[in-house]
Design a binder for these strands. Structure first.
Lengths: 240, 240
DNA sequence: AAAATACATATTGTCTACAGCAAACATTTG
DNA sequence: CAAATGTTTGCTGTAGACAATATGTATTTT
């Protein structure tokens, strides 16, 4: 029945995840069940199941009688993210180094190879998705069902934040991406060597790189105003 | 329509949670959708939505074409739990002390009052549920959507483990419960005072109490065999 | 003219009936 | 008698039709 062996329901699930991660579906927007079910060629009951599951994973917020809203990103969201991310990332990496199986390491290497490709040829969305998968695999290596839920939630918004603050005009981002990719290689080496402390430390460093990148967008360098004109004066004039 | 203002679907959701937390539904068992839907007076599609959501929260594991299985508890489960719990509990308590609102503190106090009652009059299941609620409220106080998923998952199994290793024959457990209740009072005081470090430290202490209790069941004190008879000799004789 | 209420419309929530898959049992054949 | 295959039964998965609720608009009343 399916060209793929994946069912249409599974396709729907994965496609919605992808669209949310890449911001193709913007945070906060409401989706129409009928439209979606028709788009994926399934009826509304299974679609609603999919939405419930994705709500459980943090992709959607469900409002009674109001439908499914793509998980919004507020100012508080970003703050909370910064507070928890390093702890969970470090813990995941540590456990990954302790528990990773050879098969998982192979998968991680393959993913990293794809990531290198994407850095050069791919677009921002593709890079973001592959990066998400890389860290997802590390999460799976950690093999801890109590840590995974928070990690999953973090990766969703880490990916979306990365997409939000992406700007193709900034050439220094390319250098930072190379650096990130180098750190990925180090992750693989440390995990393969079973170096838990090293992996945890690298996770923090990797996080710092990402954080600095985000912060450079959130509070960018001020432009130098001529003479002593008040910052924001133009905006006020334009708004009135 | 509803005697309660909660819909029957909500009742179903909450009742399944309760039954799983109290081990009324044992880990690993498979549930029949038709039976359940009839029991709660709803049809199968909304029931399936409920199951999907609860699967997302970690109460169930869904197997394709095989139905819903109450989340099983293996040896690995327990190990993983021990590894992650102190970190997440400490982090939650710290953030709770930093962010708790007066209204939330009031709710926590009310919950603690109920807990004290339950220690004397309630049964094991009631105590377990109220304890779960107490720590859930602390989680809500932390107000961090990235930390909450793991905390929720931990509380599910913490509650179930507590029920598993409960034995009404052990009088020293009553003393430990009093101690736990005292620590709850300290939680309230520290959170109200905004003492983040204190709350985090108390979380670790509270965890240690719980851990010691669990461990006393997992590896109980050996009985003293008369003379030099080999441990397990009886079992071997019986088995052959 | 403005506000409130009633109605119409669109969307979510639910139910019943059917289709598909899997496991267990019976039957047949080597 | 054993093993393999066919059949049956009971469950999960899905579809389409119906009910309920919320929102927006139009009309009426003050």
């Amino acid at each position: 029945m399916d060209a793929d062996n994946r069912s249409r329901k599974t396709i729907c699930l994965e496609d919605l995840r992808r669209k949310i991660l890449t911001l193709e579906l913007e945070p906060g927007v409401y989706l129409d069940e009928t439209e979606l079910s028709e788009a994926y060629g399934i009826s509304r009951p299974p679609l609603r199941e999919v939405l419930r599951q994705l709500a459980g994973e943090g992709y959607f917020v469900l409002h009674e009688n109001r439908g499914a809203q793509v998980a919004p990103m507020t100012h508080k969201t970003l703050r909370n993210f910064f507070v928890v991310a390093p702890m969970i990332y470090a813990a995941s990496s540590r456990l990954a180094a302790e528990h990773a199986t050879p098969a998982q390491v192979a998968r991680l290497k393959e993913c990293q190879w794809t990531f290198r490709q994407a850095i050069r040829t791919g677009d921002a969305a593709e890079r973001a998705l592959i990066n998400e998968r890389f860290h997802s695999i590390i999460g799976e290596m950690a093999d801890n069902e109590y840590l995974m839920p928070s990690l999953r939630r973090l990766l969703i918004d880490h990916t979306r934040i990365g997409m939000t603050f992406y700007n193709p005009r900034k050439p220094e981002l390319a250098r930072q991406r190379e650096l990130a990719a180098d750190q990925h290689d180090q992750f693989i080496a440390l995990i393969e060597a079973g170096d838990a402390d090293g992996a945890a430390a690298l996770a923090v460093a990797h996080w710092e790189l990402s954080r600095a990148q985000i912060e450079s967008f959130v509070s960018p360098q001020a432009i130098s105003y001529p003479l002593g004109r008040e910052p924001g004066a133009e905006e006020r004039r334009g708004a009135s």
